[in-house]
Design a protein around this nucleic acid. Sequence first.
DNA 1: AATGAATGAGTCTTCATTCAT
DNA 2: GATGAATGAAGACTCATTCAT
Lengths: 204, 204, 204, 204
Amino acid sequence: MQQRAQERQRRILEAALRVYARRGFGATTMDEVARASRTSKGGLYFHFPSKEGLFLALLRYAGQRLLAKVQEAMASAPDPVARAEAALGTVLRTFSRHRPLARLLLLEGLGGGRRFQAEATALRQRCVALIGDCLQEAVAQGLIGPLDAELTARAWLGAVVEVIVHWLLTGRPQRLEDAYPHLRALFRRSVGLPPQEALGQPLP
Amino acid sequence: MQQRAQERQRRILEAALRVYARRGFGATTMDEVARASRTSKGGLYFHFPSKEGLFLALLRYAGQRLLAKVQEAMASAPDPVARAEAALGTVLRTFSRHRPLARLLLLEGLGGGRRFQAEATALRQRCVALIGDCLQEAVAQGLIGPLDAELTARAWLGAVVEVIVHWLLTGRPQRLEDAYPHLRALFRRSVGLPPQEALGQPLP
Amino acid sequence: MQQRAQERQRRILEAALRVYARRGFGATTMDEVARASRTSKGGLYFHFPSKEGLFLALLRYAGQRLLAKVQEAMASAPDPVARAEAALGTVLRTFSRHRPLARLLLLEGLGGGRRFQAEATALRQRCVALIGDCLQEAVAQGLIGPLDAELTARAWLGAVVEVIVHWLLTGRPQRLEDAYPHLRALFRRSVGLPPQEALGQPLP
Amino acid sequence: MQQRAQERQRRILEAALRVYARRGFGATTMDEVARASRTSKGGLYFHFPSKEGLFLALLRYAGQRLLAKVQEAMASAPDPVARAEAALGTVLRTFSRHRPLARLLLLEGLGGGRRFQAEATALRQRCVALIGDCLQEAVAQGLIGPLDAELTARAWLGAVVEVIVHWLLTGRPQRLEDAYPHLRALFRRSVGLPPQEALGQPLP
DNA sequence: AATGAATGAGTCTTCATTCAT
DNA sequence: GATGAATGAAGACTCATTCAT
């Protein structure tokens, strides 16, 4: 049945997310995933074609979850620059609250062979595109001077990612969100904006 | 004997670098490494304790090579800010010329399980420290305003790394070095400096 | 399922008994055991945790079989001394008819490392205890004079084992059972009994 | 040179005795033997043809040592029965003082494959022959009644061996020699002798 | 749909043995 | 004679995948 099947798939993906985040893709066996999702190995292969296929589906599923949050946050931002900042802030905040998600997308995604790198890169590229579009628009609206929008977006994302990865692997800073104000100030200055918005603008 | 053993170890590491970069850690077998280094499997295990141990040694060896170049470049820079720029520029240029090194340190290092992540992080942290020290000094000399030196350094490194990773996985920009002027401009502006040095300063 | 799994385990143990007895623990490969039990290597590892674990299980399984026969024989003996004799006689007879069992329990069990020695010793000790209890009871009933029951039991068992081992390794005497009357006479005299039971007592 | 070579061989054998007794034949590597005898692997192979050859030589060497002591003890015994008792007592005492020797000859010798079993059996057979000859002579001299001398000798040896093995594996009795008086009484009674020698005979 | 027993190709690792120095 | 680096055959064990029930 559609309903049950979907639920089961969801349960497997959630369990797989936990397991892969804890043990890494290479070190995780299908047995572990089966146990974690209270299924049998046969069940896994009914819903997913292979170990790689399951992981790929997981990357997509997790990527969706992240992108959805990012886009939602962007939707309620007043201007292009604020949208870009909202995007980066949301990335930071989401990963801060979902370490497994972070491990999966930022660490495991990269190290497990070409197939996964392509998927992880695609997600990153989508983030870069979202932010790049904002920058492009900000340039068009004259909010900031001309620049290479994609490169700038990539640099910003890279900065955020690096901070998150450092946090993942060392636990510092304790509250990842604390890093964001500094980062935002850097980002704003890097495109010629003052580090803080003009007075009277409330922070989200 | 010392001499022979050292040479053989070097040869194994160089071969392993190539193989791991091409196939990834997980997909590479010790047989392949043995073949690539024109050794026997037993020889590998005479010089390194295990597959993981070999990879760890390789990460250290490759990290050394990178750091040596970075520090050399920094030595000939006139002021703190130039030193930081030299460091980042050298990272970019070195990886640009040694793709296998880049794959190893930026991709395989992070994705292959806890043990390697620690090693890869240590390297990144050493780069951050080098750059952070420059920034600290620049602040002390009044060249730039006060800031969180480590965070800024990490953000810069992350930006560079992201650009390199994107290049590794997509091949763009064709000439990785082309990205650096833009990045440097971003970096400089992000700490309140003009995007270009004063006139009369030749670019390296 | 329970049924299938149990049968398979039994089949593996029976096959392993043959192979280990023929080739010895050290020289036997898991492939050989797999082939002999018409299973796959993976099947072996599904039912047993390791080569050592399989051998340990085998020692226990074989020990059970022996002990069961011994206890059965003891049950139908009229008095304590007869019970002890029945025990030793059954040991001799059982091994005489199941050379693989004898090789396994008397030779391979001892030589294959601490783990197995403990198991083999436990079995021997259980035999000693059975016989020792008989002797104890015989003393209590005044059938024989006071003595160190456990030591005597161990000495008797050792004598029987030595004879069996010699037979295993040299093939003499051709009919192992022929040795028993002499041994029994020795045993009986060693505790002050006449070498043969009083007249009128039928021999089993 | 003869002298040096002999010493080196001796050193290797002594070291090998310790190592094999501690770790067992199967689990011991030539590297360990080399290290324990402060030699190199090459050195081992200069003096002994192979791992098996070394172990075989060791069994012979250790067997010699035991037999020499046994024969020496027998030489000073006044009559056949005393010689047999001296032999068994010496076996017990020697092993009691040289656990490694005991482990080697009684445990490792039997469990390590056909080749070694033959060697270990040969040693046992020589002991049995020594004792059997005594019994034969005792019969001839009319000291004891007619019996199967070899079988009796084997039974006696087996009893002693079993007690030693039990001591090796469980540590009881703490002082192995304490078991001998009881055993001797059993042995004497088993051939129709009184458990103690006539008065006035001092115990060795 | 689900289960878990079964398969077997693939890998890491060990270690006896050799041999150039 | 001695050393220890090198070899490679062999073997334990894993695990993705299949399939009868």
